[in-house]
Design a protein around this nucleic acid. Sequence first.
DNA 1: ACCCTTAAACTAGCGGTGTAAGTTTTGCCG
DNA 2: CGGCAAAACTTACACCGCTAGTTTAAGGGT
Lengths: 218, 218
Amino acid sequence: MPRPRQPRLTRQLIVETATALIDAEGMPAFSTRRLAAELGVRGPSLYNHFATKDEILDAVADTVTGAVDTSGFAGRDWVAALRDWAWSYRRALTAHPNIVPYLAQGPGRRPAALAMADAVYGGLVRAGWPPARATHIGAALRYFVAGSALGSFARGFVEDPELYAAHYPHLRQAHRLAEHQQSVDEGAFALGLDALLHGLAAEYARTVDPVESGRPSG
Amino acid sequence: MPRPRQPRLTRQLIVETATALIDAEGMPAFSTRRLAAELGVRGPSLYNHFATKDEILDAVADTVTGAVDTSGFAGRDWVAALRDWAWSYRRALTAHPNIVPYLAQGPGRRPAALAMADAVYGGLVRAGWPPARATHIGAALRYFVAGSALGSFARGFVEDPELYAAHYPHLRQAHRLAEHQQSVDEGAFALGLDALLHGLAAEYARTVDPVESGRPSG
DNA sequence: ACCCTTAAACTAGCGGTGTAAGTTTTGCCG
DNA sequence: CGGCAAAACTTACACCGCTAGTTTAAGGGT
């Protein structure tokens, strides 16, 4: 089968199908041949549109990251901006949990990740944080979000009570974690995020703006 | 070459060599044949000691997690215990950054991870935290540590200034991140951890022990 | 209208992967 | 000392990422 009348593949179609495949069957099932089959095509044909498998994965990762909303940093309230961003970030990652491990490594070359870092850093500096602090805060939040999306705490547990009761005295109810997976993970994220922001606000009041802090901003 | 006088492989030797190989050359270079070659052996021989490749990786992951110190939870100061644990956890993971993505997924079956979760959960409950809260706190800290070890923020950036100056106005100095990689990551971790613990202490004072908080514990 | 370049699919194939199956020799136990 | 289990081996299968070369169609230039 030679060149068809109408191209059967486009970069966008490949990325969408790759995303769906990874979502549905996980990273190990994602091979170039499998993806090609899903597209009704023969494997090496993908290499007319992408140079390597990793290039496809980078495109998927960039699309996922592109869904994160950083518009809050345009406003004046940096705490609210961080909170909205973190939740949006988490939502984007948990929508495609299987690519998170890939996505979390080496974001420094992907445009969407850079745009996100730029927006966060700029917003924090504008709010008065010293540049070095702004970098640390952005990184710390990224750690927290990526970690929460990567290793769903609850998902790791198994529904077999016997496994835990014997050796881990305090985890007698750990098998219940598997049931309430989503609520445990979201609860842990909410608690941790609030604590983080609380601590950062205290640091801000102490070091950046001792005068204005505590008053209604204006 | 049949069965030798003295076995050339043991589970421990395999795990140690696997760890060294992953540390030195990364996860993609870790194949059963490559590992076997490193051990002076022929590939399938490994299957006399482990059923699958993943079983080897699980053993490596468990060893890494086993190095985490949770002894602080035996004491009375839960904040100090969390801090010590988090740093020890981070040290254990950053000592072997290449297996972190694997390690962070599905810890619910590995003994060392379960023992760690048990110690943390038990310590927090003993300190007065409600069980649900204790679960959330342990998970939140785990998110933060795993995220920090997984996606070294700075490592993602590249030493090419041109790449950032053009499109990301606030990242003009991002290429410097590559130089100060370790200090950026540690600084971000220290800042985030302190903020998290500060926020948790405030929550504790508000909901768990409004009377004792603020006084010297006794 | 024709040619020529380029695009986009194909087939064939290389070296590598995890792992199953069966073989051989050794050490140990009854 | 016979027999069994252990621990190495060889062979082989199906799959993997990717390269090379082939075939045909689309589209632009003269």
